[in-house]
Design a protein around this nucleic acid. Structure first.
Lengths: 350, 350
DNA sequence: AAATTTTACACAAACGTTTGTGTTGTGCAA
DNA sequence: TTGCACAACACAAACGTTTGTGTAAAATTT
């Protein structure tokens, strides 16, 4: 009967002008008062704030952004948000952003180059104050990022970074992580270790492959080209690649995959084929996705300190924006190798 | 030697005014030309576009937003992005948003009420054109959303929606989903089914509990209060609650959890205690997180059509923004019950 | 050919801030 | 009492668009 609606439905937001008019003063004074700038008396300041509160005034960030030339917003471009690694980075970015009252626009490319390009345009049009990016799988051309640079706003890459560009980059030591995992696998007794690799033009996959190759070399294990397979690192790809290997009569005794997902695909396939993990076949992945610790057996993998990485990103941005950006920053974090049951062949029984 | 930099480092972005000046025309004509509005000749239009392209003109969305009073951006507030359910919804929202060229600001509350409040303020200040929300676990007060409503922009809730408010809402039939899962468990032969519930003031958890209770009732199984436990639905909580049950000497023969995560915690705990799933103990969850199909045994759960839900959300928003918003829309999707091994006690051997 | 409509453009105001520069008036020292 | 510094405020321009209106010339009709 008595409708609960209080606020008028289509009420225009109250502006600084409205406040000024009601107080018999000017917009400039109101603006200064609200932001505690000098040049306005104690009494007026109080009156302004009181009225603002009472009228439910909310500053128009768009207008302020236009005038000040910045939006206090940053853009983050990632392949997908539902990877624990990326959502971890995002969490880190957000934590720092939240403290400094920055808004974060998150864009998912789904590993598609066209979307990546489009989002860069959108973010530049939205006049974000900076862009944080991890490249998509398809990205083998960086023209769209040149535009960002020439626009003058900070650009920071993390994890999947472009090789050719001299830009800020934050990453984990993929080479070391891979090296150590494979070393452990060899120590556990595996002899013919296969590798699932990603595209060679992305630093992370190249480095992981190099780490794998280095481990073999250090242990005088010859590299078998047949055991190194490139795929798109999904569960399905992992399953399929494993199947194809066996179909070709190639039988490794372990797998180090550049991704936890393709590792999982292979693991599931091998289990279905009746192989026992880790006795008959060892499996290791990369990224420390959460599921790796739930499955049976838990998967050996490499943690990339995703949240830390996110914090570093945002802090680097804040530095840059303060004008402290000299040469492009380069930060490399140490990965943490997590040896779990999936590569623990009964080696301790020696 | 010859530095590659073309764009001047700190180059101010070229504006519509710059173009106008160079063409000997006015900003208004340039603006209309670029947007293919009527009132500008074919020849001039071409000249404008050519120059814009050549000078790398990029429209300033902030300025346009201020003038037009809309930002072509929407805000999405979710508890966390690294749940498959939420990232699925986000994917759906983005897909539709991308087509209609809307930007999406994603905000994670981490289930905290203070963050939820803060993000609402931020989004309103940023003058987003609409807000899509799924409530946090702590949210038992909706004052901050009243502000959104009185600001006049569309507000749409999904999945976790407020009871008291008469607003747009899109959800899945939690009651039906739960009812069917528990019915199946009973048919599979489980007699004493425990339930992990979330806070009663959130619709989804209340409905799931109701579905659970209804299933018992329909099968003339008395409700045992000891078997209904509220926790915060994390893995750890699931593990702990299960442990506490056993410690108290209460021994259910199955569990239906309102969340896949707490279901997983309980499942892992029971396996560690030597119980076989599903023979000795049945487990079912809710939400169809991806990991549920990887673990051993695969977990029975309920799919909520997350991506669909996201699309519905965004489409409902688009409708509202076109002014076609009559009474608040209410959409209920049918869930899909996924019976998997974790509740498949050898019932078919009858 | 005159009257009328239409086209192609220019002009100017507006969106809501922020900020540089005037303009008072007050208090203080000389 | 004059001069000066400074506080407290008003005034106005600017940020980059969009959009309503004005005004010629061109195209169309009669």
């Amino acid at each position: 009967m008595t409708p609960k609606k209080k606020g008028h439905k289509s009420s225009k937001q109250v502006t600084i002008k409205d406040l000024a008019r009601q107080l018999g003063t000017t917009p400039s004074t109101v603006s200064r008062a609200l932001r505690d700038q000098s040049g306005v008396g104690e009494k007026m300041r109080e009156r302004v704030k009181a009225l603002a509160r009472q009228q439910n005034y909310r500053p128009n960030a768009v207008a302020a952004g236009l005038r000040k030339g910045n939006s206090h917003t940053i853009g983050v471009i990632v392949p997908r948000v539902n990877r624990d690694f990326f959502s971890g980075v995002i969490a880190g970015i957000e934590e720092v952003a939240y403290e400094s009252r920055y808004s974060v626009i998150i864009c998912q490319t789904h590993d598609r180059l066209d979307k990546e390009r489009q989002y860069v345009e959108t973010l530049l049009s939205a006049r974000v104050d900076g862009i944080l990016v991890s490249l998509g799988l398809e990205t083998d051309n960086y023209d769209h990022f040149e535009k960002v640079i020439s626009s003058g706003i900070p650009l920071i890459f993390f994890d999947r970074v472009p090789d050719e560009m001299n830009v800020n980059r934050i990453l984990v030591d993929d080479y070391q992580g891979s090296l150590q995992v494979v070393q452990q696998m060899i120590r556990a007794g595996y002899q013919r270790i296969a590798h699932f690799a990603g595209p060679d033009y992305l630093n992370v996959y190249r480095d992981r492959k190099q780490g794998y190759l280095a481990a073999l070399q250090k242990n005088n294990i010859p590299v078998d080209e047949d055991l190194v397979i490139s795929n798109d690192l999904t569960i399905e790809a992992g399953r399929r690649s494993m199947q194809e290997l066996l179909a070709k009569g190639i039988m490794p005794d372990a797998l180090f995959s550049a991704s936890d997902y393709s590792a999982l695909g292979a693991l599931l396939f091998m289990q279905e084929q009746g192989y026992r993990i880790p006795q008959d076949f060892g499996v290791a992945g990369f990224s420390n996705e959460k599921f790796t610790s739930y499955i049976k057996p838990p998967l050996t993998t490499v943690d990339q300190h995703s949240k830390e990485m996110g914090k570093y990103c945002m802090n680097l941005f804040l530095q840059e924006v303060k004008g402290e950006g000299g040469a492009p920053g380069r930060i490399m974090l140490n990965p943490e190798v997590l040896i779990r049951e999936s590569t623990l062949r009964k080696t301790d029984e020696k």
